[in-house]
Simulated scan of single mutants.
Amino acid sequence: MRHEVTIEPYLGETSKGSRFGAAATVRCFVDEQTRTVRSPGGDDVTSGSTVFADPGTQAPPGSRVRLPSGRVTRVIQLADHDGGGLPTPDHVEIHLE
């Protein structure tokens, strides 16, 4: 895990806009590659970056993420990859806007 990002978990909407939790620094690997992913609403959207982090990393869709470049973006979707005890690299894949 060569990079660090800051994740502010999305907590929901208020009358004043989006609400976020406390920022947490997460060690990860950042892949700045454009790809198409499916949003939680079922739409195909373009992801500009993907973060690969340790299992258990919390970043619900809508969370705010600051990349090593300083760019601030939002989480589109999160996928847990767990090999169930097999010798595979367990991780969380976080697709960002």
Rank of each mutant, 00 (worst) to 15 (best):
G70I: 08
P40K: 04
V75Y: 01
V30P: 02
G42S: 05
F29R: 08
S69Q: 06
T14V: 01
R19E: 15
L78H: 00
T6I: 14
L78A: 03
G83T: 04
G48P: 00
D82C: 05
T34L: 10
Y10H: 11
H81V: 11
E32H: 01
S18A: 15
R27C: 01
Q58A: 13
G41W: 11
P9R: 02
F52I: 12
S49N: 09
K16I: 00
H91G: 01
P40D: 15
P68D: 13
G62W: 13
G21V: 02
H91F: 04
T57I: 03
D90K: 03
T46M: 09
S49M: 03
P55C: 14
H91Y: 04
K16W: 06
D31N: 14
H91W: 02
V30A: 06
P55S: 14
E4R: 10
G17Q: 11
R64L: 15
Q77I: 00
F20L: 14
A22G: 08
T73N: 07
R64Y: 12
S49K: 00
R74N: 12
H91L: 03
P55T: 02
D54I: 02
T6P: 01
R74Q: 13
E8M: 10
G62Y: 14
Q58H: 15
L86G: 03
G41M: 14
T50K: 08
G41Y: 08
V75C: 09
G70S: 11
A59M: 12
I7M: 12
R27W: 01
Q58K: 11
T6N: 09
Q77M: 07
E32W: 02
T46I: 08
P61D: 13
P87L: 12
M1Q: 03
A59E: 10
G62A: 12
R35F: 01
G56D: 14
F29G: 11
G84W: 07
P55L: 15
T14C: 00
V51E: 06
R38K: 11
P61V: 09
M1H: 02
R66P: 12
R66I: 12
A79N: 07
I7S: 07
S39N: 05
L86S: 07
G84P: 03
F29M: 13
L11D: 03
P60Q: 14
S47K: 00
I76N: 05
D31G: 06
A24W: 00
D44Q: 09
L11N: 03
R2Y: 03
A24H: 06
V5D: 06
R35T: 02
T88M: 15
G12V: 01
T50V: 12
G41V: 01
T88H: 06
D54Q: 13
D82E: 13
